[in-house]
Amino acid sequence: MKVKFIKTSPTQNMTVLVESPLGREHYPMVASRLMSYDHVFAEQVGFIESADNSSAWARLQMMAGEFCGNAAMALGAVMAWRRRLKPGDWLEVPLEVSGASELLVCGIEARRSGYSCRLDMPLPLAMDRETLLLEGEPTPVTIMRYPGIAHVIVDVSEFDGPARNKAKSAAKLASLLQGEAALGVMLYRRRTGELEPLVYVPGTGTLIWERGCGSGAAAVGAYAAIEAGDDIDLEIKQPGGVVRVQTRSSGGELAGLTIQGDVYISAEGTAFI
């Protein structure tokens, strides 16, 4: 099988976007092969489809049907790249995205190298607080539930071995999923604004420490805004770079959530599956 692809780098969350039309039943197998070290090698795979909504330029369907903010920004950047957007020019790209019930608008500004992307994010469906037994220790966590993905936020003082082991234990707790296609565990060091994201996708069996996670950064931003009872403007530092998160409230409720980050086009070509 030959597969046309574009490899992108949204905050170094290496994302392969497949352009070739494939049946969705093939997505898990194709994604697992493309992600492997001896193949194209990436942290995640999305598939570009025709949109049902005539207002959308395209549809992004992630490998397990989960929602992904970074991949949505990557697709927006690809649309700008295809249209040869010049440095300093701005483009708004409406997209259908798996895990999101409404169209999302990705704003793209071309730069001399890469693109600055701003994405309107879906709001969390719910915020739950629980205490989990992780590595034999009761650990308070906050769970932000989004369409298609749940993020478990764990406040840590250090990104050390014990914290990472707790994250791996949490990622495999099937009880944390309530129909979502993916589970993220966000180790968050509040005092420095740093985030280390671990993402588990049961459909493909992948458990990856990602260099960056857009929806995870959004989850932390929403969590911070709700905790503060006010709008926030945070720069979330991740291993691959910074994602800026901004929130907007109305009547004391979270009413708007955006993320902003840089996307680079790394490669395009044909992969052999």
Rank of each mutant, 00 (worst) to 15 (best):
Pro239Tyr: 02
Val156Gln: 09
Thr192Asp: 05
Met63Thr: 01
Leu22Trp: 01
Leu60Asn: 05
Gly256Tyr: 08
Cys68Pro: 06
Asp155Met: 08
Gly88Asp: 05
Asp160Lys: 01
Glu109Pro: 04
Asn13Ile: 04
Pro28Phe: 09
Ser32Leu: 12
Asn70Met: 05
Ile149Lys: 02
Tyr27Ser: 08
Ala42Pro: 00
Ile6Asn: 01
Ser250Trp: 10
Leu60Trp: 08
Leu17Glu: 01
Gly240His: 01
Arg164Gly: 05
Lys166Gln: 10
Asp230Phe: 04
Arg189Val: 02
Gly252Val: 08
Glu19Met: 12
Thr204Pro: 08
Ala224Thr: 14
Leu119Thr: 01
Gly214His: 00
Glu210His: 04
Ala58Asp: 03
Ser20Trp: 09
Ala126Asp: 13
Asp89Asn: 11
Gly136His: 05
Met121Thr: 04
Gly241Thr: 06
Val45Ser: 00
Cys213His: 03
Leu75Asn: 00
Gly221Thr: 11
Lys86Cys: 12
Ser9Ile: 07
Val185Glu: 04
Gln12Leu: 04
Gly23Trp: 10
Gly193His: 09
His39Lys: 14
Met121Gly: 03
Gly23His: 13
Asp233Trp: 04
Asp128Ala: 13
Leu254Thr: 01
Val152Tyr: 03
Tyr188Trp: 15
Glu235Val: 06
Gly69Ala: 15
Ala126Arg: 12
Gly240Gln: 08
Gln260Ser: 13
Ile226Ala: 06
Ala217Thr: 09
Val185Leu: 02
Gly46Trp: 05
Gly88Thr: 02
Asp120His: 14
His26Glu: 15
Lys237Pro: 01
Glu49Asn: 09
Glu130Ser: 08
Pro138Cys: 06
Pro122Gln: 07
Thr8Arg: 00
Val242Gly: 07
Ala181Asn: 07
Thr131Gly: 02
Arg59Trp: 07
Ser266Asn: 10
Leu133Lys: 12
Pro122Asn: 04
